[in-house]
């Protein structure tokens, strides 16, 4: 019973950590918008934490370059399992319009495994919330 409660709780308490790989801040503002009274993701138990060691879901925005790829990888490694990663916005998905730049590696999935892709430039808060809920399905999938 305890195990079931824990499994259920996973989906009810996704603590998110937001990492900006070099975004234009458009997506970042939309991520923060989710926390405002307008969208209020805390309804679903979502809490924005600043520490990978406490986080369950990593939200990544922006393009990856060789410099911040190390940091991204490190933060991902410091998150204890089970964890999920959501790439947000065109840049996070593929590099977006910066894809061909000399210093851009491409999308987030070039560095760490991504579970959910949320498109948009910038991504809408509704889409981000939808992405988080979809990521929870991964935790739901751990049941059993």
């Amino acid at each position: 019973m305890l195990k079931k409660f824990i499994d259920n709780s996973r989906a009810k308490s996704p603590w998110i950590m937001h990492f900006d790989c070099g975004s234009c801040n458009g997506c970042d503002i939309e991520v923060l918008a989710c926390l405002t009274p307008m969208y209020d993701v805390e309804r679903f138990g979502v809490v924005n934490v600043g520490n990978p060691k406490h986080a369950d879901v990593l939200l990544v925005t922006g393009t990856v370059n060789p410099r911040n790829a190390k940091v991204l990888r490190n933060i991902y490694d410091q998150m204890p399992d089970p964890k999920g990663v959501i790439a947000i916005g065109a840049c996070g998905l593929s590099g977006g319009i910066f894809r061909e730049c000399y210093n851009v590696l491409g999308g987030i999935d070039k560095v760490i495994p991504v579970d959910i892709y949320v498109p948009g430039c910038p991504a809408k808060p509704e889409a981000i919330i939808d992405g988080v809920v979809a990521a929870l399905a991964k935790f739901e999938g751990l049941k059993g």
Binding site: N51, P52, K53, K70, L72, Q78, P80
Partner: peptide, 14 residues
């Protein structure tokens, strides 16, 4: 159990 490096804004020397 898994040994995590301390948190240093992701910039740890590994």
């Amino acid at each position: 159990i898994q040994n995590g490096a301390s948190y240093m804004c992701g910039a740890n020397v590994k």
